[in-house]
Amino acid sequence: KRPMNAFMVWARIHRPALAKANPAANNAEISVQLGLEWNKLSEEQKKPYYDEAQKIKEKHREEFPGW
């Protein structure tokens, strides 16, 4: 399985609240909304998620060399 990128790290945190706020929305609609919200963030706001994604990527590389 591929390691999460910065957007996926961010979305994992924000998806539950968005789903709760929009109970009639299906998963595809929630994903679209998450994408729109992510694109509104500044690079500075995204930086912690890029940092976390890098850590996940490095850990994945250690656990699965050659993947």
Rank of each mutant, 00 (worst) to 15 (best):
S42Q: 02
F7G: 02
L36E: 14
A28M: 07
R61G: 11
F64G: 15
L41E: 00
Q45N: 11
P65F: 09
Q33P: 00
F7D: 06
E29W: 08
G66F: 06
R2V: 04
A21Y: 15
E62T: 15
P16C: 03
N26R: 04
L34A: 05
E63G: 10
Y49H: 02
L18I: 10
V32E: 14
K47T: 10
F64K: 15
Q45M: 01
K59E: 14
S31L: 10
P23V: 02
P65M: 05
A19L: 13
W10P: 02
F7I: 01
I30P: 03
K47I: 07
G66N: 10
K46F: 00
G35Y: 15
F64A: 15
S42R: 02
K57M: 14
E43A: 05
A21F: 04
V9L: 15
I13D: 14
P3Q: 15
P16H: 07
I56M: 14
E63I: 09
F7E: 11
A11E: 09
A6T: 01
Q54K: 12
H60Y: 11
V9C: 11
I56A: 05
V32R: 15
V32Q: 05
E58A: 11
V32M: 13
N22I: 05
W38L: 01
Q54R: 12
N26Q: 12
L34H: 00
K47R: 13
I30V: 10
M8D: 03
D51S: 08
A19Q: 15
N27Q: 13
V9R: 09
K59Q: 11
K57S: 12
E29I: 02
K20D: 10
E29A: 05
Q33S: 06
W10S: 00
E63S: 13
R12A: 08
K40N: 15
K57V: 13
P3D: 14
R12F: 06
E43W: 06
Y50D: 03
S31N: 02
E58K: 02
N39I: 01
K40A: 09
R15P: 01
M4R: 01
V9M: 07
Q33H: 08
V32Y: 14
K46C: 01
K1D: 12
G35C: 14
I13T: 13
G35P: 04
E44V: 07
P16M: 07
I13H: 08
S31F: 05
E58P: 08
P23H: 03
I30E: 03
I13G: 04
R15W: 05
K59A: 13
N27A: 13
Q54M: 15
A53Y: 08
P16T: 14
A11N: 03
S31W: 12
